[in-house]
């Protein structure tokens, strides 16, 4: 079952498309990274999933139930949406208590307080619980936000940029926490503009650009989706023409003729997909009568893939 299932979701603000015909499936139990540059529509999507913003069209299903206002399925969700939001004049502990009671969780006071102490400890705030939020640092507020998200022991966690404002150590402890929760069966849907973060912890990644999902898969799949091979041949123009005709091979970049060992010779960078690799390039070139003096497979970082996907989308517009 999908924890979050989104179909042809569209949202426009005064004619400006923030999210454009988006399909998304977040499998229950997975740690899903929702990646995209700022302004790609991540936050709008998350707000639609949580029922804060109403879609212009399209559907959202949470744990198999269609989302309606105040949907019961949301009770099984926990969320951190952009900045954490707290009443500054209340202590961290009392803030959590107000949220717990506002949600109407009917469990008895003792269980509720015990759970609050528990999440404060998980968030590393056990000594700051009595302090007013007014006096919290940004990192402490962020950690209290995470404590709030996991307060109701949710089945699904939706986190928008959860490591914002944290120092590297804090970021690491958040990543570890999310991984632990996901391993324990919690579905985690986390948005980020930090690739390294998503690469390090997620099972699946969706890349959003200009309100559209431009790629989806495991980090490894995304990386392999676009491997690069640098070739050194005696006829760059010929190689370019030949490889360009094969689907799954995409000569990219300007041929580097400075490394030439003869007229027309040089280096060319080729992006491969559909499972094709250096071998396929070699076979095609040799069959075409082109001499190959070097084949260098280069594994792109997820960052390169991401930049390419997002830029490709920029050019398409």
């Amino acid at each position: 079952m999908s924890a979050i299932r989104v179909r042809s979701l569209t949202k426009s603000y005064g004619g400006q498309l923030a999210v454009n015909d988006l399909d998304l499936d977040v499998e229950a139990g997975s740690l899903y990274g929702f990646l995209g540059p700022n302004g790609a529509g991540k936050t709008t999507t998350i707000r639609m999933v949580l029922g804060l913003v109403f879609p212009s069209s399209g559907e959202v299903e949470l744990l198999g139930e269609p989302l309606r206002q105040g949907a019961a399925a949301l009770e099984r969700f926990g969320a951190l949406i952009e900045e954490p939001g707290f009443w500054p004049y209340l202590s961290g502990k009392r803030n959590l208590e107000c949220y717990a009671r506002a949600g109407g969780s009917a469990d008895d006071r003792r269980a509720r307080l015990a759970r609050i102490d528990e999440v404060l400890e998980i968030a590393g705030l056990e000594h700051a619980g009595k302090k007013r939020v007014k006096a919290y640092s940004q990192g402490m507020r962020q950690r209290l936000g995470i404590a709030l998200a996991i307060l109701g022991d949710p089945e699904v966690l939706v986190l928008d940029e959860p490591t914002n404002g944290l120092d590297p150590q804090g970021m690491r402890s958040v990543r570890t926490l999310l991984r632990t929760l996901a391993d324990g069966g919690t579905t985690v849907f986390v948005s980020s503009h930090l690739l390294s973060e998503v690469d390090l912890m997620c099972d699946r990644v969706g890349v959003l650009a200009h309100g559209r999902l431009v790629a989806q898969g495991t980090p490894a799949e995304l990386r392999s989706k676009s491997e690069r091979v640098t070739i050194e041949v005696n006829d760059v123009a010929g190689a370019r023409r030949l490889l360009g005709e094969i689907s799954g091979l995409h000569p990219v970049g300007t041929p580097n003729l400075e490394a030439a060992h003869g007229p027309g010779a040089g280096r060319l960078s080729v992006r491969t997909s559909d499972g094709l690799g250096a071998g396929a390039i070699n076979r095609a070139l040799v069959a075409g009568g082109i001499e190959v003096s070097a084949l260098i497979p280069e594994h792109d970082s997820l960052e390169d893939v991401f930049m390419e996907l997002v830029q490709g989308e920029d050019e398409a517009l």
């Binding site: 949580l50 949406i81 954490p84 939001g85 707290f86 500054p88 506002a102 109407g104 709030l148 109701g152």
Partner: peptide
Amino acid sequence: LGTLRYLLARPVG
């Protein structure tokens, strides 16, 4: 304060 979205996401009708 930014608390409205968290109240509604609890969810509070």
